[in-house]
Every structure is written in C-alpha cells, then in structure tokens.
Design a protein around this nucleic acid. Structure first.
Lengths: 155, 155
DNA sequence: CGCAATTGAATCGCTTGCAATTGAATATCG
DNA sequence: CGATATTCAATTGCAAGCGATTCAATTGCG
C-alpha cells in the first residue's frame, strides 16, 4: 500500500483542462459516439458489443464471469442481456449444477453477427489517427491506471 | 482527411483484451468509482463536479458554453443544472440580451464549495499511483485521441 | 418590414452504470 | 441434520448521456 505524495512545490491542477481525468472522461465520450455510429448497422450499443466480444471468445459463461471480464455487475448486465435476448442474439438459461447461476449462450444469429462486426476494429483504428505503437502504449498505460484505481479503491 | 490503413500483415485485435477502447472504457469506469467516493462528501456526482470546475474558473456563462467546454449538450446539461440549482449551488437565469440563452451563475454556497473540493485533485493523483510526468503524457495522448475522434466523426 | 432559416434550451424515450436491497440456492459449521 | 452465512442474479431508484424533436427567440434575406 504505497502512499504517494506530490513532489514538493508541485500542485495538482485545479482547472478543468489541467486534469487527466477529464481527458479520460471526454476521450471516452468521443469513443462512445464513434462506436454508436459504427454499431448502428449491427443494432448494438457499445456495452452490448463488449458482451458479444466476450461471448465470441467463448460462450456458455455465467453473468458473474461476464461481469469480471467487463468490470460490470448484474445490475447493469441483467437488463442488457435481456435486451440481447429479445434481439435474438443470446440465450439465458439457469445452470443445472448451481441453480443460482445464469448461463449465457450465443444463438446462431448471435454467432453469425461476428462476421458483420469484423470490420469494426479496423474502422476504429483508422478514426484514431494514431500509430499502432502509440495505441499499444496508450492501452498499456490505461490498463495500469485501471489496476491502480481498482486496487486503491479496495482499501 | 488522412485515410490511414493498417501496416501490411497487422490485424487489429478482435479480442476484448486487445482493444484500446476497452482499456479506455474500463479505466473511465474505475475513475468514476473513485470520484463517486471522493465526491460523496460534497454531494456531487462527477459530471456535476466538472460543471462546478468550469464555473469556478469563471461563471456567468451560457449552457452552450458549458457544453463546449465539457463536450456535452443541453439534453445532458439541463437536468444536471436543475439538480445543481435544487442543491442551491447555481442559479439559472434567462439572458437579457438574448432570451434564448440561459446564464449559469454560482451562488455563495456554490462558491464556498470550492474550498471543500480543494483536496480532491491530490487524492485522485495519489490513487493513480503514477508519476507526474507519466500522467501529463497520458493526458496529452488522450487529448490528441479525443481530437482525432471528434474530427473523424465530423466527416 | 415580413417571412423563412437558424439558434438555444428544453423535452422525450431509450440505454447505461451503480448503490442498495431482495430472494433463492448453496455452502459452512456446530 | 439444521441453522446461519454466503453467493448469484434480479430488482429498485437514481443520475448520466444522447438522438430526435419541439418551441421560442433571433437572424438574415428579399
């Protein structure tokens, strides 16, 4: 539990534009708007797309497991999964071994959507206007930041 | 309008963990949770805190100007500002020169809150566990990314 | 001037995101 | 075995966030 402090004489910024967090917040909003356009053809929202990404990697997992991957809990996932089910993309079935669990499975339609979504990552990459190396570095930094924030929160 | 393409042989990642966007999304969620704790004492949400930051820099601005600073529109800001008004932190008055505009002003209570919020940036800095240089670089990269995404979207 | 186009804010409907609670199934421990 | 604790998902209530629309005020143009 490292307790960091500011280098002497250095003030953390008190203005909007000085804050990392606002850059993070507003970049995320901008990313959300881009995805909204790209995913409109697929009738998916960005969080729904994330769920599909996880399921395409391997379905038949529980709501909890989905939540661990996405850092979301059942209050967010349950309604979202119901919407994906209404759209005919996933199936939700109670587990047989443990009846508390709900197993999420792809339908044929859900599996088929994968092909249609194949072009999305490249379109996003183009919109970033960044070099691959830069994006990889940025990704790693954000993952490190995420870890620190989650650990620190778990005081 | 530079049309970028991938270096030959390099595929954009199709898995969740490979994607920058998810790192951005999940880091932003983690940041939101941290702020929720820090701001609970002040009875502010993070977007409300952002609005207050802008107003502390200089109040008496319109809803549109607030939106330009924060990349938000009136559909988000109007209800948020009404809540800040209910909390006694801001005042909303129709402009005299142009009756379409709504001018947002701090109340004495709103101005007083600034002192209570003074420790927030340092607490956030500590929670990041990062060096100052690193945060500054990260901030700049996110701002560049934000610009590209917004420009690209405005096609 | 007078009317169409534009602009600023508000409103509506929908989807997140989360703290807090609930209810049911399972695990644990005496 | 049986009571208690824990765990999983669902539910509730609230605050964003945004596309689309609406309404009034203003601008612009003939």
């Amino acid at each position: 539990m490292s307790k960091k402090s500011l280098p002497a004489g250095l003030e953390p910024p008190r203005t909007l534009d000085g804050q990392l967090c606002f850059a993070l917040y507003s970049a995320n909003l901008a990313m959300g708007k881009l995805y909204r356009q790209l995913l409109a053809k697929l009738d998916l929202t960005y969080p729904q797309y994330l769920v599909m990404l996880v399921l395409w990697e391997g379905d038949g997992i529980t709501v909890s497991e989905l939540g661990e991957r996405l850092y979301l809990d059942s209050a967010t996932l349950t309604p979202l999964l119901k919407r994906l089910q209404s759209a005919g993309l996933v199936q939700r079935t109670r587990g047989t071994r443990d009846e508390r669990q709900v197993i999420v499975t792809l339908t044929d339609e859900g599996r088929a959507l994968r092909a249609k979504a194949g072009h999305v990552p490249e379109e996003v990459f183009c919109a970033t206007g960044c070099e691959v190396d830069e994006l990889i570095r940025l990704k790693r930094q954000l993952e490190t930041l995420r870890s620190s924030l989650i650990d620190g929160n778990r005081n």
